[in-house]
């Protein structure tokens, strides 16, 4: 008999209540129960970082989190980064400008990780950016475009905050 729980999780500002198996991973809950497929799964043992989401504003591996552990918490996924449907966030725009993505599979985890970094540290050094994404594996880009994008977005966000 599958052990289930009714959980309520706020995702990108919207509350969802669902009865889920208690062994269900948060990554699978987001992808297959809520059909928010932007969060990707790469290794399911917490190394690749593709599944990174923010839980109560802090980055976390959704493959190393049970959906029941998110009960009563707020989750932000890649779908929640852009300010609206027609506009990209500075970070997203910078990723396009600097060719910070190729296949796009690790990208959601990179974006959520950098979203947290730039919120906590609006003026990171290149070393701090590299360190922040050292838990995100990208097999395509060689990281350079991502690092340049993060630094550029940080600069634009600081300028935006000043204006």
């Amino acid at each position: 008999m599958t052990d289930t729980r009714k959980i309520t999780v706020t995702v990108n500002g919207k509350s969802h209540t669902k009865e889920v198996p208690t062994r269900l991973l948060l990554s699978d809950f987001l992808r297959h129960e809520l059909l928010l497929t932007g969060t990707h799964v790469g290794c399911e043992h917490g190394v690749c970082g593709a599944c990174t989401v923010l839980i109560d504003g802090r980055s976390a591996r959704s493959c190393l989190t049970l959906a029941v552990q998110a009960n009563g918490h707020e989750v932000m996924t890649v779908e929640g980064i852009a300010p609206n449907a027609d506009e990209l966030h500075h970070l997203q725009q910078a990723m396009q400008d600097h060719h910070g993505l190729q296949c796009g599979y690790c990208t959601p985890g990179i974006l959520t990780t950098l979203f947290e970094l730039l919120r906590d540290n609006p003026d990171p050094s290149e070393h701090e950016v590299r360190s922040a994404i050292s838990g995100n594996l990208c097999r395509c880009t060689g990281y350079q475009g991502i690092v340049e994008a993060a630094l550029d977005a940080a600069q634009k966000m600081r300028a935006g905050a000043r204006s």
């Binding site: 969060t39 990209l88 990723m95 060719h99 796009g104 599979y105």
Partner: peptide
Amino acid sequence: KRLEDPALLTGKGRF
């Protein structure tokens, strides 16, 4: 700039 990117950056890929 790549035309593929906006969808991939907003979680709208089709993997």
